[in-house]
Simulated scan of single mutants.
Amino acid sequence: MLLLPYKYSRWRTIAIMSIAAIIGLGLFLAKEAEVVSYMSDDPKACVNCHVMTPVYNSWMHSSHREWANCNDCHVPHNNIANKYFFKAKDGLYHASIFTLRKEPEVIFMREASQEVVQDNCIRCHVQQVTQTKYDGWITDHTQNRTERKCWSCHQEIPHGSVHGTSTIQYNIAPLPTDTGETIIPEWIKQELKTSKNEE
């Protein structure tokens, strides 16, 4: 058995205790920050940061709620590695801004996020964007629709026209998204049932 001089064993003890404290603190912070939830596609993970509550609530009341969650629009879908790399990079940026209390009143996408959202708009709405029936009589139809940002025209989709963190009424906590209910009003459901019965 090799005996180390006293000063080396003391430093080894301090190093082990320091590493254990850092790992313990890291695990505690990861649990408190609900880090694992960010790996899911659950929209409620986005509201772990309170500044995202108005964005979440506006999405909850939009038609996109029925078809797309946050990751469907805001994360790349070209491969799994890029998806999680982008989520980690963007999440660390958001976490640092939120921790430093530097979040703006109105949140805007950075350039990298704009590219991702634009690509995802086209990915889901490719038929509407690239319909060839117009190419014969509208000059540069496809280029016109793919080279500019979708939200230059569709400004209120899916987060509405009110974008400030303090401007949405009753902006306390997210509404549950897993209730199985749709946002289709009852009178439309009745109308659909009536029209089916008449056929």
Rank of each mutant, 00 (worst) to 15 (best):
P104K: 11
N171G: 07
D119Y: 06
A173D: 14
A45M: 01
E115C: 05
A95K: 00
E186H: 04
M109K: 06
F86V: 02
T182C: 03
M1V: 12
K7Y: 15
P174E: 05
H74P: 02
A112R: 06
A81Q: 09
T142C: 01
R65H: 04
T167Q: 15
C153T: 10
T167C: 14
K193H: 09
D41H: 09
V35R: 04
T139E: 14
T99F: 11
V116R: 01
L29C: 14
T53L: 13
S152D: 15
G164P: 04
K102Q: 12
E147I: 08
E191P: 00
S58N: 11
H163L: 15
P76I: 07
I138R: 13
C121A: 13
M109A: 10
T194N: 14
K44A: 09
I157F: 11
N71Q: 06
S96V: 14
V36I: 12
L25G: 15
G160P: 00
H64L: 08
Y84D: 02
I16Q: 15
V75P: 04
T182R: 02
K196E: 14
Q131Y: 03
C49E: 03
E103D: 12
T139I: 06
A68C: 05
Y38Q: 08
C150H: 09
D140Y: 06
A20L: 15
T142W: 00
S152T: 15
E181F: 08
F85Y: 11
K7Q: 14
N69W: 01
K102Y: 05
E115Y: 07
R148W: 11
T177R: 06
G24H: 05
W137K: 04
V36S: 08
L192C: 12
R101M: 05
Y38M: 11
F85R: 10
N197K: 12
I184F: 06
S58Q: 11
I19C: 14
Q131I: 06
V75I: 14
P54S: 07
Q169V: 08
A21T: 15
E115L: 08
K7T: 10
H61S: 13
N144V: 05
V106S: 02
H154V: 03
V116K: 00
A20D: 11
A15Q: 13
T13C: 15
N79C: 10
A45E: 00
M1K: 10
S18Y: 07
Y84L: 02
R123Y: 13
K133Y: 07
Q127G: 05
T165D: 03
L4A: 13
F98N: 06
D119G: 02
T130C: 01
N57I: 04
K7P: 04
P158I: 01
A81L: 13
I14P: 08
D140K: 13
H154W: 03
K87P: 00
